[in-house]
Simulated assay, not measured.
Amino acid sequence: MITTSGLTKSFDLDGGSILALAPLDHRIEKGAFVSIVGPSGCGKSTFLRLIAGLEDASGGTIELDTGSAKRPVGFVFQDAVLLPWKTVRDNIRFPLDTAGVRRDEGNRIVSELIELVGLSGFEDALPKQLSGGMRQRAAIARALSDDPPILLMDEPFSAVDLLTRETLNDELLRIWQRTGKTILLVTHSVEEAAYLGSEVMVMSPRPGRLKKTYTVDLPHPRGEATKLDPAYHQLVAELRQDMRETE
């Protein structure tokens, strides 16, 4: 679904140029859940922004073979960035309204998404009336509103407490299995990366290079038993070692 070839990104800074992402060659299959880890500044978020078209590549190519005419990606940022004057329902429906989707069809889609992300009963709440975790649920629903084949997530749970984060991890797995989306998740937590991913990409320090890729064979559904699985702990240990070696 996503193929990069010689992908690079440089940024101009103070009259010079900084190479943020070194040539990256990789292929991500349809329906994969890819966790991306690496030290700060290694190009993880830049990689997502390049896929989304929010940044232009300095070199190389990105191919998105989605087999769909729909907008190819939805993006969930660290901050939920909801419109504060709109309700949950209207925030989720906003992309549909701007795309000219019929009101009745938009209402049907929004109702299904509210149920999917577990916000039933909060349809008419404003963002300021929601917890951080609930705001991120609304942001995920909004990103899914026009049914993009690819969901990009840039540390979406970094600002919530541990218990909320674990709950959102389980909810995200449920959404992934139910929708069949291809998901790319940037995270600084190797535990989260191992728990969620079907694949883990480990990036090196800037300029970011793909140091190693793990295929995660932990069975589904995942839950508390997964976190007691010796295979899970072995993967976390290996990821931690990789991270130490990149420092």
Results as ranks from 00 to 15, higher is better:
Arg108Val: 02
Trp176Lys: 01
Ile109Thr: 14
Ser111Glu: 14
Gln136His: 04
Gly197Asn: 15
Ala143Gly: 06
Asp147Val: 04
Leu116Val: 06
Glu191Ile: 01
Gln177Met: 07
Arg206Tyr: 10
Gln129His: 15
Arg178Pro: 05
Leu96Thr: 05
Glu171Leu: 11
Gly133Ala: 09
Ala139Met: 12
Leu144Asn: 02
Arg178Lys: 14
Ile175Ala: 09
Tyr195Thr: 01
Pro149Gly: 07
Ile175Leu: 14
Gly121Glu: 15
Met153Pro: 03
Asp154Ala: 03
Met203Pro: 02
Asn169Val: 03
Phe122Arg: 04
Arg93Cys: 12
Pro148Thr: 02
Trp176Gly: 09
Thr179Val: 07
Pro156Met: 09
Pro95Tyr: 14
Gly180Lys: 05
Glu105Asn: 15
Leu172Gln: 01
Val101Ser: 13
Lys181Ser: 00
Gly100Lys: 09
Ser198Cys: 09
Asp154Arg: 00
Ala194Ser: 04
Ser198Tyr: 09
Ser158Val: 15
Asp170Trp: 05
Asp124Thr: 12
Pro207Met: 07
Gly118Ile: 10
Asp104Lys: 15
Glu191Gly: 06
Ala125Thr: 08
Glu191Cys: 01
Arg108Ser: 13
Val186His: 00
Ala99Leu: 08
Pro156Asp: 02
Ser158Pro: 03
Leu185Gln: 08
Pro95Arg: 10
Leu113Tyr: 13
Thr167Pro: 03
Thr164Leu: 10
Glu105Thr: 13
Arg135Phe: 05
Pro156Leu: 04
Arg93Ala: 15
Gly132Val: 05
Ser145Ala: 15
Ala99Ile: 06
Thr98Tyr: 15
Glu192Pro: 01
Pro205Gly: 14
Glu171Ile: 07
Gln136Leu: 00
Arg178Cys: 08
His188Gln: 14
Pro149Tyr: 09
Arg103Tyr: 11
Leu163Trp: 05
Asp154His: 05
Gly132Asn: 06
Val202Tyr: 13
Thr167Val: 13
Ile109Gly: 09
Thr164Pro: 01
Gln177Val: 10
Ser120Leu: 11
Leu126Asn: 10
Arg165Gly: 09
Leu168Trp: 00
Ala138Ile: 03
Glu171Pro: 00
Leu144Val: 15
Arg108Ala: 07
Ala139Asn: 10
Ala138Phe: 01
Glu199Trp: 06
Asn107Thr: 14
Glu171Lys: 00
Ser204Phe: 13
Val190Lys: 00
Glu115Lys: 14
Arg165Ala: 04
Ala99Met: 11
Ile183Cys: 06
Leu196Cys: 11
Gly121Trp: 01
Asp97Ala: 11
Ser120Phe: 11
Pro127Asn: 10
Leu113Gln: 04
Glu191Val: 06
Arg206Met: 11
Ile175His: 00
Pro207Ile: 08
Pro205Cys: 08
Arg137Leu: 06
Leu96Tyr: 13
Lys181Pro: 12
Arg108Asp: 15
Asp154Tyr: 08
Phe122Cys: 12
Leu126Glu: 14
Ala138Asn: 10
Leu184Ala: 13
Gln177Gly: 10
Asp161His: 07
Thr167Phe: 05
Gly180Gln: 13
Ala159Arg: 08
Arg142Ser: 01
Pro156Arg: 00
Phe157Glu: 04
Ala159Asn: 05
Leu196Val: 03
Glu166Gly: 11
Ile150Arg: 09
Asp161Val: 03
Asp170Thr: 09
Thr182Met: 03
Leu96Cys: 13
Gly133Arg: 00
Lys181Glu: 02
Val200Ser: 04
